[in-house]
């Protein structure tokens, strides 16, 4: 363990909340929303790996790898959906896809 766990938690929290702020700010653009979700998931992986290094347990690294597999599945589906929606409306503006509002 080269640095205290608290510093790793601060770095991960900074990255997570930067991603959250970006997600709130870019809420009109589907692509940038997905990019900000990537940033947040990456911060979560950093927490898992930091805990794994702190307690010398391999489970944290395994969960980071599972998060990576989950992210690749999520991104492939989400980008396929972006392509599909762009084919329908010629835009990636989220406000254009609001027909389901009650």
């Amino acid at each position: 363990m080269i640095v205290p766990l608290e510093h790793i938690l601060i770095l991960a929290g900074l990255l997570f909340f930067i991603g959250m702020g970006g997600l709130l700010a870019w809420r009109a653009n589907l692509i940038m929303m997905l990019v900000c979700i990537e940033v947040m998931l990456n911060a979560v992986m950093l927490v898992f790996v930091g805990g794994s290094a702190r307690w010398g347990n391999a489970d944290g690294q395994l969960f980071a790898i599972f998060i990576m597999a989950l992210t690749s599945a999520e991104v492939s589906l989400a980008l396929a959906m972006v392509v599909y929606l762009h084919r329908r409306k010629r835009t990636v503006d989220t406000d254009a896809f609001s027909e389901m509002k009650g």
Binding site: I2, I8, I31, L34, V35, E38, N42, M45, L46, V49, G50, S52, A53, Q61, A64, I65, M68, T71, S72, V75, S76, L79
Partner: peptide
Amino acid sequence: FYLLMAPLVAAFEVILYAGAIMVLF
């Protein structure tokens, strides 16, 4: 990740995240 004793996660980060997902974007 490599500094935190997780070389496997570091390699997957470069290969999967930077290599595959970002290229997909």
